[in-house]
């Protein structure tokens, strides 16, 4: 723009400070040589100050965020984007295939037994909501006889195993929607 003669039309952007260095210099030079432009600049600067004083309401942040979060969870109930959901599914499939490979009958290994049975122990895959209080998580795990044995994964998933009734624990976790964003039995 600096090659074009600046005029009144450029003044609002000099007033709001958004012109680049060359544009600013050109428009300022014009103002210095023109009473008309100087007066117009004074008018626009006063106008901008008054516009800035307009008492535009603030958005009620907390309430609006809660609404947005609710809508996000309704449309994305697991709290993860489709890309990460895909990644989580892919990771689960990988684990499943890996488990099958490990547990495929191998005649050469029939005399050997695993030292731990934890690999075969079915668990629960859980994602907690981001701001879930730790105390409530601990209480829930205690009440349902659950232990965290792995996680969090890249998608924020934890693996839990049950020392009690796994089906009952799963049902209890599903009810805790303010703490649990996602839960699935393995």
């Amino acid at each position: 723009m600096s090659s074009v003669k600046p005029d009144k039309d450029d003044l609002p952007w000099l007033v709001n400070g958004s012109l680049d260095e060359a544009e600013t210099a050109a428009v300022k030079a014009s103002i210095e040589s023109s009473t008309e432009l100087r007066d117009e600049y004074a008018f626009l600067a006063a106008l901008r100050d008054s516009v800035k004083q307009q008492d535009l309401a603030d958005v009620p942040l907390e309430m609006s965020w809660q609404r947005l979060r609710r809508d996000i969870r309704r449309q994305y109930p697991k709290g993860v984007s489709s890309r990460w959901r895909f990644a989580a599914i892919a990771a689960s499939l990988f684990l499943l295939v890996q488990s099958l490979v490990i547990w495929l009958p191998d005649e050469s290994a029939e005399h050997y037994h695993p030292l731990s049975s934890s690999v075969a122990e079915p668990g629960l895959r859980v994602q907690f909501v981001d701001d879930a209080p730790q105390a409530r998580i601990r209480q829930l795990l205690r009440e349902q006889h659950l232990r965290i044995v792995d996680g969090p994964s890249a998608a924020g998933l934890y693996r839990l195993v049950s020392d009690g009734d796994r089906a009952q624990a799963l049902a209890a976790l599903k009810k805790q929607t303010d703490l649990i964003a996602y839960v699935q039995a393995e």
Binding site: L61, S64, W65, R69, V80, D130
Partner: peptide
């Protein structure tokens, strides 16, 4: 946010909500 991080979304919301809200109000 693209990775599904709600905390990041909340931070973004807190940063820009008023800009959007006031524009619409205007």
């Amino acid at each position: 946010i693209a990775a599904g991080d709600e905390k990041a979304m909340q931070r973004f919301f807190n940063l820009y909500a008023n800009n959007v809200y006031r524009y619409v109000l205007s």
